[in-house]
Design a protein around this nucleic acid. Structure first.
Lengths: 185, 185
DNA sequence: GAAGATATTGTACAACTGTTCAATAAAAAT
DNA sequence: ATTTTTATTGAACAGTTGTACAATATCTTC
């Protein structure tokens, strides 16, 4: 790996963090970021398509961390409601951990891209649970049901975002388990 | 109302439709739109903040149409599962009706704003159903459950978008009613 | 350490953005 | 029909974008 590339990437990522402390992502310009990062603007375009490209790199790592959080204490045997609870609450702890980032991700002005990244991550998790619980049954859940379930969970995150992340992860998890296990409407 | 303003608005909205036929929303510039609309660029900024401001106006009307679709055949009495089905399917018919617009709304590059507009519209509807079904009970559903339910429905729309709107509204509604009435996972 | 590979820089370009201002045109009010 | 109000225009501004190129600096490899 070329040291120059590594250094450039570091400067850019660091500059983004600096700028995010004073203004919203959508107001940050490439020119400004390059001035902070002390790199040529042309160099920026050699590595990223635009400002969102930088943030996306960051968010990829965050989503990766979520995947680890969920699957770290994965119990092969006897996945009951208790284990389900233990896994689900990881999602809320994760969002709380990276709250400043999710404030950006769920912002009105920000592209759907990041929502989809989180969605796909949680969806994989939901699909695994579903296939695990329904093993033996020949009919696996249709894609629509997986997306239905996944986005339901994300609905809680949206509400959480809107109320300003006041509710505790524990209480959110209590809600979630209740919504999942009880009949709806 | 000033005729000049009305004429300007018409020109701008019409120009957006023309440009949307040849390129994605995110690639349309204010300058280009003003050339098509044959208005001064300064005039544009007198009425809209940016290109998204124009699209938002359009989408407001579309969301308004959804509200009408849902509440048009509203049955005051005896809202059973059959009536619920009749109301829910309106959502799918609506999205199908404005498919080209929802292709934009659900696009990766497009701001969350439009997703939230649709979300709030459906959320109002879900909240009404919930309070209707649970009337008598002193405890009304918490905000988290309404958002959970609402976004679950939108999960079906997201999946629908991803598969290219192949599935029929009738089948989607069949899925949805099944997901709502059956116990989850 | 020298040679080769390649990342970075500086400069330039046409196009777009968002804003300002006086001048003009067009509508509304009388 | 004239006056008043106000929307639109044209021009200009500093700043941004995305791209291109030759010149330079820096890293890797041998």
């Amino acid at each position: 790996m070329d040291l120059r590339i590594a250094k450039t990437h570091e400067s850019i990522q660091q500059a983004l963090l600096v700028l995010l402390k004073e203004k919203p992502l959508e107001e940050i310009t490439v020119s400004e970021l390059c001035r902070i990062a002390k790199i040529n603007r042309g160099t920026f375009y050699l590595h990223y398509k635009n400002i969102h490209g930088v943030f996306e790199k960051y968010f990829e790592e965050i989503v990766e961390d979520l995947k680890c959080s969920i699957h770290a204490p994965y119990h092969e045997i006897d996945q009951g409601v208790e284990d389900l609870e233990a896994d689900m609450i990881q999602i809320f702890h994760h969002v709380k951990k990276y709250e400043p980032f999710y404030c950006i991700v769920f912002d009105e002005q920000i592209p759907m891209k990041y929502y989809y990244m989180l969605f796909h991550s949680i969806r994989t998790f939901v699909a695994e649970i579903a296939s695990f619980l329904q093993k033996g049954e020949p009919l696996n859940l249709p894609d629509f049901q997986i997306s239905y379930q996944t986005n339901a969970i994300m609905g809680i995150l949206l509400e959480w975002h809107q109320e300003g992340y006041v509710t505790s992860p524990a209480e959110l998890n209590w809600y979630l388990i209740r919504f999942i296990t009880e009949r709806h409407l």
